[in-house]
Design a protein around this nucleic acid. Structure first.
Lengths: 235, 235
DNA sequence: GCAAAAGTGTTAACACTACACCCATGG
DNA sequence: CCATGGGTGTAGTGTTAACACTTTTGC
């Protein structure tokens, strides 16, 4: 029972964040090289230790900032990993977080002595400890979330085209969509505002740019099923 | 960064489980009286401490068994609570789990010196620390899960009637369904096998009993959207 | 003028909602 | 024989998936 505080063993508590990015055609993963001797050349997730006076959320935000300089990133708690032997050095319970950011906005990291780098999600180096398991878990959460919430926009620049958005969703769900159905569905959500500008330089015709509506003007859209390519891909 | 193990502060790690039950008409919550002085008369979730050689999942299973004698219960990790002041006695990070069981099968607990008791979910005593927050979190997870996975059956006896199942779903989603639409939808899922027996003693006509198909025979059904009363109730 | 990407509509199948009456039985 | 809960069908509406051609413009 929850008494006998004094007799209980304590654990190190770590935070590890899976940071997804998108470069226009592929999903990216932000990794960092770990500073300790034994695993000097192994890439790992953005991780750090929980400090005495911070909540888990605060700690995850601080760690990300310390390692990359990134601020104002929305981090969402995923799950906890706690196998006794998951960290061979000392028993550690790790709480994972995930975040989505537009990777082209953050190419250069203000990361002090750490080296952070974007990798293709489907082609990244081997990871420390159980970090690959954490990444797999995060991908499945990302798919779930993207199906029901307009979450993909955080991975794109503030102005984007429908074909760009479609490529993003195709990357998230690792599949292809019919562009007529895709654009109809996205526009029907009422989340996007069409701008007068066209994207230049990529296609010859140029595609219209859109931006996300201000929160206030989106009503029904965000409370309803948002985008499900086909339910069985996400469950 | 994840080095400097020696310098880091350690934390107590607790497990707290939200155990849902169903008595045929209402959802139930299994609570226990905590053993420590300051909060002797406060009910709390099934909780205990993580031990050195067990994983989080193992610990949650063990704690549930120690407090209630319940075994072979499928527990699923929910989330972690870690505000620095959530436990006033000492800093504790708590990992929550939830489970669904058929409460009528478990009325009497082999709980050693502990006192475990079922309460109506909508009418239970005040809870310790942030346990109410944990319960709220679990309810929303239960709704989500029930909408996409045939999860409700764990709350019923192995043979059950369609009206019983409907009552369960009505309790989970706190609403009412049209019985014609409900049964059509559930049967269309292909998850149920109709038995030759009828339930006796409750209604005069008697309702046919069904059982859950063996895993093997369910194909399309479990991979597809299973039961969504109306999407905006669950998102 | 042609290659490459953008943009746009219709149809047929299916899924969902709403709704009302008869059935079987125990008392 | 009647009260209680069990069981069933249909019509209308909305939603989804599948599908092909025209437009723009840089080269």
């Amino acid at each position: 029972m929850l008494d006998q505080y004094g007799k209980q063993t304590k654990c190190l508590v770590a935070l590890d964040s899976i940071i997804f990015g998108f470069d226009g055609s592929k999903l990216k993963l932000l990794l960092v090289k770990r500073g300790i001797e034994e695993s000097k050349n192994i890439w790992s997730l953005m991780g750090g230790w929980l400090q005495p006076n911070e909540s888990l959320d605060e700690a995850a935000i601080r760690v990300l900032k310390d390692l990359t300089g990134l601020e104002n990133i929305y981090l969402e708690q995923l799950s906890v990993f706690g196998r006794p032997d998951r960290d061979p050095i000392e028993r550690t319970v790790s709480v994972t977080y995930f975040a989505l950011i537009n990777s082209t906005d953050y190419e250069n990291f203000d990361s002090g002595s750490y080296h952070a780098e974007w990798f293709d999600l489907d082609q990244h180096p081997e990871l420390l400890f159980d970090h690959q398991e954490m990444v797999d878990n995060a991908i499945s959460r990302l798919r779930n979330k993207a199906a029901f919430h307009p979450v993909g926009f955080e991975l794109l620049p503030s102005k984007f085209t429908i074909p760009q958005l479609q490529k993003l969703y195709e990357a998230i769900f690792d599949t292809e969509f019919d562009k007529r159905n895709f654009s109809r569905r996205i526009l029907a959500s009422g989340l996007l505002t069409k701008l007068d500008e066209k994207q230049k330089g990529f296609s010859k015709k140029g595609a219209f740019l859109y931006e996300l509506n201000s929160q206030n003007t989106v009503k029904a859209a965000s409370s309803n099923l948002y985008f499900v390519p086909s339910i069985d891909r996400i469950v």
